[in-house]
Nucleic acid binder design. Structure first.
Length: 245
DNA sequence: GCGCTTGTTCTCGC
DNA sequence: TGCGAGAACAAGCG
């Protein structure tokens, strides 16, 4: 569920409902960190996403949903696990489970910069490169997960992007030749759109080249280790992915 | 029943 | 007081 492309899928599914600007007729759920009555009888002005954040925008505030690792949602359906937030409209309802819900005051544009959302039209690769150069000592396996640089990229995308670009996860940013750095940034966005397409087709896992695999496409043995400050599982091929230094 | 995980935030100790 | 490492939290699948 949680990586950026999956949030785009949620946004697309809601678009297909043709809700327009629906009024919230009822609010359910056990989210306690804000007053749910704030939403009652308010009109949703739009559904947006920023990276892994799903945003339900109202006139002067926005509800932010973060699915973390285990979050889920149902459109016009309910399940047994307690609902965290449910919005009931005239014909349709949205239910969110096991997620973090927060209320952001004011205009949502004050809270986010879309140039670092790998899925956004506003994505700026030059801004990403600039931010990477400010972290010369950081490891590539860590920077890909930095939501202020690659908002929306998660652990699957990280691993696949590193393999596609043949970059070893333990390379430092400062050791990457400019062309490699550029390729890294380009592929972070490019693979994210492949992820979106394959996830929609239900064929995402079939296309994994290293993530959760035992062998790379060239039949080399895959290493699986917790690497970097982030300590996330990293799947990589020592033969295909080279350290520069 | 256990181990694992597409993630983030908070606490604690130095 | 600032920091980084580790804990904490969560649900469902094989």
């Amino acid at each position: 569920m949680p990586e950026g492309p999956s949030i785009v899928i949620l946004k697309d599914l809601i678009r297909e409902l043709h809700l327009g600007k629906p009024e919230v007729l009822e609010v359910t759920g056990n989210a306690k960190n804000f007053d749910k009555d704030r939403l009652l009888h308010q009109k949703v002005e739009g559904f947006k996403s920023w990276g892994k954040h799903f945003l339900i925008c109202f006139n002067d505030f926005t509800v932010r949903i973060h699915f973390m690792l285990f979050g889920s949602y149902l459109i016009n359906g309910r399940k047994k696990t307690p609902v965290k937030l449910g919005l009931i409209f005239k014909k349709d309802e949205l239910n969110f489970y096991t997620c973090k819900v927060d209320l952001l005051e004011g205009n949502v544009k004050e809270h986010y910069s879309w140039e670092n959302d790998v899925m956004a039209d506003e994505w700026s690769s030059s801004a990403a490169i600039k931010k990477l150069k400010e972290k010369p000592n950081a490891l590539v396996c860590d920077v890909l997960l930095d939501q202020q640089i690659f908002s929306g990229v998660g652990n699957i995308i990280k691993n696949e992007v590193l393999y596609r670009t043949r970059i070893h996860p333990l390379n430092k940013i400062e050791d990457l030749p400019p062309a490699k750095l550029k390729a890294l940034v380009k592929e972070a966005r490019n693979y994210s759109f492949d992820f979106l397409k394959w996830k929609k087709d239900n064929t995402l896992s079939k296309h994994w080249e290293v993530y959760s695999k035992k062998e790379c496409p060239l039949q080399h043995k895959i290493d699986k280790r917790e690497l970097g400050k982030t300590h996330r599982q990293t799947y990589f091929c020592e033969k295909c992915q080279k350290t520069v230094k």
